[in-house]
Design a protein around this nucleic acid. Sequence first.
DNA 1: CATAATACCAACTGGTTGGTATGTATATTC
DNA 2: GAATATACATACCAACCAGTTGGTATTATG
Lengths: 216, 216
Amino acid sequence: MSRPTKHAPERGDARNRLLEAARDIVRKQGFAATTVDDLCKAAGVTKGAFFHHFKSKDALGVAAANFWTDTTGAFFEGAPYHAPSDPFDRVLAYIAFRRAMITNDIPEFTCLVGTLVQEVHATAPEIRDAAGVSIFGHAETLEADIAAAIEVRGISPDGWTPQSLSRHFQTVIQGGFILAKAGNDPELARDALDHLDRYVRCLFGVHAVAYSGDPR
Amino acid sequence: MSRPTKHAPERGDARNRLLEAARDIVRKQGFAATTVDDLCKAAGVTKGAFFHHFKSKDALGVAAANFWTDTTGAFFEGAPYHAPSDPFDRVLAYIAFRRAMITNDIPEFTCLVGTLVQEVHATAPEIRDAAGVSIFGHAETLEADIAAAIEVRGISPDGWTPQSLSRHFQTVIQGGFILAKAGNDPELARDALDHLDRYVRCLFGVHAVAYSGDPR
DNA sequence: CATAATACCAACTGGTTGGTATGTATATTC
DNA sequence: GAATATACATACCAACCAGTTGGTATTATG
């Protein structure tokens, strides 16, 4: 009878429920504008539970960033863009996958750690660093495919490396989120990825084709 | 004897001093984390002055975004990247200029409205829209040069337009700021612009050359 | 089964926050 | 030069905020 369900808070659940609440609310409102009470209310727990699991609001911020790293890490690891046998196709499939992830609800597809770091980069180094690990760690997962694509396609990168390109992917993704927010239009985030797709094809000397929008 | 100096507050100065304080403090701390008292203290005025000029903190946010639009608009209009006679060179000069603006102090070169919109996009539509006007309005100033460069270079854009490319410039710039913050390293913002430079040369069929880093 | 640790909850607190009420010196208008 | 409007300053407030205190129910341990 101890089946953990999503909407019936159960003993031992509070920490995770708080982290999920942080993930959802911080993306909507930002970190500073989100109160501890907001999080407790959304998680269905009291402040006692909050400060039992996190020694401060900032500590929750660090934990939320790490939670993001873990959950998105597992999500991308299991994602279908790894399937193509050609490494360059995997790189393109990553971009298509990121594009397909963009829904109509902005807080739903935007990045928690990008939002976090924008706010706290100068005031909460521990949160900033946890966000950095998340972004640069995710970028790293692309490096091997990019390096393999360079080899397979027989190109000689001039002024860029697998690392710098993998980071540029994140740059374009994060920048696309900002434009989507500023224009209140998710399509702007898709446009960013279309330009990225074009850039990558260009770097690898592959002619751009009309973009289908289908990640498969 | 009524010479307005920068550090001796004078009658009639309060509004501008508050906007300058907002520009500087919000980029460091974010909007929600910046209190009205913070702004008053930095501007050397009292709360009475604040609420005389702005009916609420959110109203100051809108005014600060508009202030940013006006001041950066004038700054870019008078910037030297407009000098080259060839429009494509002007486009490259813009990128080089943006790159040269990146100093060692992150809050100094990052974008107020990018920071603002990330925080308030879903909670303060008026601030979000003012930020949108700023970003997309600035992007628009690049469209004519891009369009002229297309003509002069005789290329046929496939799947992109002067508007979408000018917006992608802002995407890369904003994304570069986020990575710079996450890595606590301004160089990451420069790397973003190097990739953008490479992309633009590729779109126009111009071979990339070793990047000098000098905007002239 | 006793002890102890864990996982919470309800009520409280002291400092902070955005905003207000009221007063006053200066500039503008008639 | 009287009246009015502008541009502030001072003092204050109710709501809110992160964090604490002191407790209880459950689980783990020996």
